[in-house]
Every structure is written in C-alpha cells, then in structure tokens.
Amino acid sequence: MPITVKLDDLLHARRMTMTELAERIDLTLANVSILKTGKARAIRFSTLEAICRELECQPGDLLGYETG
C-alpha cells in the first residue's frame, strides 16, 4: 500500500514507547503494533485525533504517501 505510517519515527522523536501511547489513546498494544507496522487497513478519525493529541503532531506528520 502506498500509504505509509510514520508512527515509529514520531514515537522515537517523542521518546515514547508503544505501550505508553497505547495506554494514553486507549487502544490495545496489538492495534498500535498493527498501525506501526503498516498492517492496518483503515484508521478511525477518533484514533487519528488521539494520536495527534498525544504526540502533538498533525495527521500529515503521521501518514505519508509514496508513489510507485
């Protein structure tokens, strides 16, 4: 899929672990892992909103589009 998820980079930059993020956004660790590894097929606006709130970023910082 040409949509990439840059959650790993954001977590690294904020010095935050996946477990910590999962607790803060009320998502299971398994689902955060699915999102981080790019295996998710869709993302809810509520999840996106929670991630942006906790990581203090914009949706565009989290998602990218790769051509080809």
Partner: peptide, 8 residues
C-alpha cells in the same frame, strides 16, 4: 468483517 478487523 476483514476490513473492520484491520481498522484501528
């Protein structure tokens, strides 16, 4: 259902 399961 598969799509819903892949939604986070």
């Amino acid at each position: 259902r598969e799509e819903l399961e892949g939604t986070v």
